[in-house]
């Protein structure tokens, strides 16, 4: 198979074939990634500062950014005020409700609560089923006017069942509930996998010392799986203003359910206001930039745990 050199380490940095290998594997991929990364972002910068004139030509302008404030925050629809509010609601739900629930669900599944195999499959089902299926069924189950399952039960007892997704009083809260219902324990898989790695001896030792179940979660499980939790928070934080629920599947942004993410999607889907939406994306990315560094700084304050 050719000449071999028993004294040459395969990771020897002076090995010329090693350099050739690294170049052949690494460089083409990095180049392609760079083309798309820089290409898309440069394209975005150009579009953000471009104003399209009626005759089809373009000129450099700050109009798109001015428009964010004149139309997005102060206009008749103030779509960004509503969008940011709703995005923060979805983000808050994700971090302050769904994540703790996921950790608790992971704890009980790890403890092999009765039926844990059944729960593990069913709770994860919304993550693997197409969103259109669950959303369509949910819409029909909760439909108003006797057409839906719940409405027909209510009507039997003389109760009214509201139009959850067609009434601005309920629509956003219904979307939040839907996100909670389909996301119940959705993140549990990561925490469950991490908790499985915790040595049973640690838990048994704690139990012998009289540690209660909530103390175990707070003082043992969470610290030991903190890298996983930190990773989840850190990767979720950039989506602070882009959090959204199933807006497209239920309300299309009407009835007070507009989110920034849906608005951007809608513009691109309809090929409308493309330059404006590029400016909006960039603007809100910069707005949330400080949060990223703060988040990383906070995460670094928590010591790593080895087990």
């Amino acid at each position: 198979m050719g000449k071999t050199n028993l004294n040459k380490n395969v990771l020897d940095k002076n090995d010329k074939t090693r350099k050739l290998f690294v170049l052949s594997m690494f460089v083409p991929i990095i180049l392609i990634e760079a083309v798309f990364f820089f290409g898309v972002n440069i394209q975005g910068l150009i579009m953000a500062f471009q104003k399209e004139l009626p005759n089809g030509t373009t000129l450099f302008s700050f109009d798109n950014f001015i428009r964010i404030f004149t139309e997005g925050f102060e206009g008749s629809s103030a779509v960004f005020s509503e969008g940011i509010r709703n995005s923060l609601l979805f983000f808050g739900l994700s971090i302050f409700v769904m994540m703790p629930i996921s950790v608790i669900v992971a704890y009980f599944l790890n403890k092999k609560i009765f039926g844990y195999k059944f729960f593990r499959i069913v709770l994860y089902l919304p993550n693997i089923l197409p969103g259109i299926i669950i959303a369509t069924i949910f819409r029909y189950v909760t439909a108003p006017d006797g057409a839906g399952v719940i409405a027909s039960i209510c009507y039997k007892y003389g109760w009214n069942w509201p139009n959850l997704f067609g009434d601005s009083r309920y629509a956003i809260w219904s979307l939040l509930f839907y996100s909670y219902w389909t996301g119940f324990g959705a993140g549990f898989l990561l925490y469950y996998t991490a908790m499985k790695r915790i040595s049973p001896e640690i838990i048994e030792s704690a139990e012998l010392d009289g540690v209660k179940w909530y103390q175990e979660i707070v003082y043992i499980d969470i610290p030991l799986v903190w890298p996983t939790i930190a990773m989840t928070i850190l990767t979720t934080l950039p989506t602070l203003l882009m959090s959204s629920g199933a807006v497209l599947l239920f309300t299309r942004g009407e009835y007070g359910t507009q989110t920034l993410a849906y608005w951007l999607f809608d513009q691109v889907r309809n090929r409308a206001n493309m330059n404006y939406s590029a400016a909006v994306s960039l603007f809100f990315s910069f707005v949330t930039l400080p949060l990223m560094f703060i988040s990383k700084w906070l995460m670094d304050r928590v010591p790593d745990t080895q087990y």
């Binding site: 798309f36 898309v40 975005g44 950039p238 691109v268 590029a278 990223m292 988040s295």
Partner: peptide, 16 residues
């Protein structure tokens, strides 16, 4: 870059 989500968005991606 995992933390920094500077993004030109779908509009720029589509155009490019």
């Amino acid at each position: 870059m995992m933390m920094i989500n500077l993004s030109a968005g779908s509009a720029a991606t589509y155009r490019f």
